[in-house]
Design a protein around this nucleic acid. Structure first.
Length: 550
RNA sequence: GCGCCCGUAGCUCAGCGGAUAGAGCGUCUGACUACGAAUCAGAAGGCCAGAGGUUCAAGUCCUCUCGGGCGCACCA
């Protein structure tokens, strides 16, 4: 399809030049039409260039159509409407896509849209002070699939999880573990529980685990001086947990980047010094401020508090500098909805440090509201009440959960209906796609078990409209992936796969395969094998399985 | 108050400045003695929140208004 588009665009350009219209190439667009009956590809170039050619779009389109050269790709050209050119491609040419897919079933869909650009996608980055919740699952699904899609489209994308194990949060976690340890000795800690320490009951398990690992330590020797130690222990426990749950969810990170390492290397201090040398640091009220307003931020930001400690922002700035220093051309952050107050300052610091600010792409993952039926489930990390990602995986399954997260635009707020996600019936759209694959597997299985002889493959016999629709969809696959990668929009893929599955189901109802004469049978088998390959690749990019039987 | 996201069919949402705005669910009608009915064919359902503007062309871009969500710490 891409090939046909390029060819048509070139030919249009030639025709315009022959008429004496030079340099109109940028106005040539060849797109897939939004409506049926407008051909396989369409161009609005006659409308676009009207003000340069001083020709009525209708007339120019008519002339371009009537003088279209003979070729193997375009079957017919029609001038329609206000000046549109509608191209119908030769069915035989389209059928070549079947050979293309069969030549490399797993590789089909790849493109060089990304031109090998190195990309770092940071996502989830949940603090290691508690279990992962459903919102983390959305970021995990989006980030992971985005990386898979971008890699398929010729980018070199890496996945990274930033572990906030260096700050105050970990101390607070240590304090909570300490309190839970005291509790185990019979002391009442709940009555005077400190307000800013997580009361979540899950900390009890961590405390118990620590006790098992360190039975020799007398509990009365623990105190405030132990918080860091206990916190580090807890952070490691939770990171392990995160890794495990994410792996279950089909998400692997290329690197877990520890804030602690940055601190040990004094990278945060270096960042403040760097900004200071550049003249972007001012001292006021005993604190050192980054003058981020100069770079479009709402207000200046404290980097070093008056007590000498650094704000969370500083190591994070150092982390981002590190990303660019490692040679990534695109740095993509997927942040939670509660972080969009953070975007301005991060952009500002990147710019201040001399990195290209437009290469920092911050995508805010929309809020996930949980419903059970119509009832809103309230979540609060501080109160310790929330639905865990592992519970969701258990209840809904990986395939369903990932599909729900990936079918809509990442930045839009969504309602996640736990009841609906648990439905294991046809209402769940992921089955629709998987069922198409299972049907094809069934037919291929039956074919292998039959006594039928294979015939030489001749794609000329694929002439029915329903076959044609499948071929067009197959040929669009690389474009869909490329566009999904360029727009950072994984949601294009579920929609495409639903369309492909639907086209297959329609074809399947209408046409027989194994009952046909050998040439047609062979060609249709090849066609559905190609459909299967694309379904498998597409679902694979989404991290969704394609079972052979359902 | 300021900033970000969102207002499209009864519901959940697509829609890369182009032609008659789409899909799934729900509703209604129909289709299996045939490779898997978790399927298919069809119908009904819309002042794209509202008002201005830019454009040959606006659901799409710009401005304002209204409605919903979220964020605006010497917290992380």
């Amino acid at each position: 399809m891409g090939e046909a588009r390029d060819y048509i665009a070139r030919t249009l350009d030639d025709s315009l030049r022959r008429r004496g219209f030079e340099n109109l190439g940028v106005y040539i667009e060849v797109d897939r039409p939004t409506e049926e009956g407008h051909g396989d590809l369409t161009s609005n170039v006659a409308l676009k260039v009207a003000r340069f050619t001083k020709m009525a779009p209708k007339i120019l389109a008519g002339e371009l159509a009537s003088r279209w050269p003979q070729d193997d790709i375009v079957d017919s050209v029609e001038a329609k409407g206000a000046g549109f050119l509608n191209f119908t491609l030769k069915t035989r040419w389209l059928a070549e896509v079947v050979n293309q897919v069969r030549a490399d079933p797993a590789g089909y869909g790849a493109s060089d849209a990304g031109q090998g650009a190195r990309v770092l996608i940071e996502f989830v980055s949940a603090n290691p002070v508690g279990p992962m919740v459903i919102v983390n699952g959305r970021a995990a699904a989006v980030g992971d699939s985005m990386a898979r899609i971008m890699n398929k489209a010729g980018f070199l994308a890496h996945r990274e999880f930033y572990v906030n194990d260096g700050g105050n949060q970990v101390l607070k976690l240590g304090q909570a573990i300490w309190l839970r340890l005291l509790e185990m000795t019979g002391i009442d800690v709940t009555t005077n529980w400190p307000e800013d320490v997580y009361p979540g009951a899950y900390v009890k398990d961590v405390a118990a685990a620590w006790r098992r690992d360190h039975p020799e330590v007398p509990l009365d020797q623990l105190g405030e001086h132990s918080w860091e130690l206990l916190g580090d222990y807890g952070a490691r426990v939770f990171q392990k947990q995160h890794e495990k749950v994410l792996r279950q969810f089909g998400v692997e990170f290329d690197r877990w980047f520890h804030e602690k390492e940055l601190r040990q290397a004094h990278a945060p201090e270096a960042i403040v010094e760097r900004l200071d040398r550049l003249g972007y640091i001012a001292t006021e009220d005993g604190a050192r401020w980054f003058l981020s307003e100069r770079f479009g931020d709402d207000k200046n930001r404290v980097m070093v508090k008056s007590d000498g400690t650094m704000t969370y922002f500083v190591p994070d700035a150092a982390y981002h500098a590190d990303k660019f220093d490692r040679g990534y051309q695109y740095v993509i952050d997927l942040l939670g909805p509660d972080h969009h107050g953070y975007v301005g300052r991060m952009r500002a610091v990147v710019q201040a440090l001399g990195y290209p600010p437009d290469r920092l792409e911050i995508l805010i993952i929309g809020l996930v509201r949980l419903l059970r039926g119509t009832e809103l489930v309230r979540m609060s990390k501080r109160k310790g009440s929330f639905v865990l990602l592992e519970d969701l995986i258990e209840e809904a399954g990986v395939d369903q959960a990932r599909y729900f997260f990936l079918e809509r635009a990442p930045e839009t707020p969504m309602d996640f209906d736990l009841d609906l996600a648990q439905l294991r019936d046809s209402k769940n759209p992921v089955y629709y796609i998987q069922y198409a694959g299972a049907r094809i597997h069934g037919i291929l299985r039956q074919w292998r078990e039959s006594e039928q002889q294979a015939a030489p493959l001749n794609l000329d016999v694929l002439t029915s409209p329903l076959e044609r629709v499948l071929m067009i969809l197959l040929s669009r696959f690389p474009d869909v992936i490329a566009r999904s990668a360029m727009d950072r929009a994984p949601q294009y893929l579920p929609r495409y796969l639903t369309e492909l599955a639907g086209a297959f189901h329609g074809f399947y109802r209408e046409h027989r395969i194994l009952d046909e004469e050998a040439p047609l049978r062979q060609a249709r088998l090849a066609l559905i094998e190609a459909v299967l390959a694309v379904l498998a690749t597409g679902l694979g990019l989404l991290g969704i399985s394609l079972p052979q039987r359902m």
